[in-house]
Design a protein around this nucleic acid. Sequence first.
DNA 1: GCCTTGACGGCAA
DNA 2: GTTGCCGCCAAGG
Length: 125
Amino acid sequence: MSEEGTSTFAERVYHVVAAIPEGRVTTYGLIGRALGSPRSARIVGSALRFTPGDVDIPAHRVVNRIGFLSGGWHFGHPDVMRDRLLAEDVPFRDVDEYLVDINACLWDPSDDPALDWLAGDPFPQ
DNA sequence: GCCTTGACGGCAA
DNA sequence: GTTGCCGCCAAGG
């Protein structure tokens, strides 16, 4: 059963990322887990990499499992992503290393019941 | 239709 | 405790 009907795997990623509360960050692994594929962490990253300009999502709140701004250069420069996180009061473990203290602001998408439909259920529409 | 790449993660040495 | 390698799922060429 792969008739998600949505559009692409990336489409679900956008919904999860868009659900990230301000001042919080999440990891690719948690997002993949919320999609029912805990092994598809790389796919989540690839999805955001292919994110068209038409999609407006806070991708700067998505970091890898160590809290490093993996896609920092995708914003033109890591400093851009860092500045956005600092503006949201996101605690940094090493600002010079672009390391976010995920242990203090890590947000689990599975904690949001609104994303329960991503755990395997078909599109709510 | 097949092969390679990729914003990563987990396990082994 | 640190470094390296392999694995997984999806999309692009």
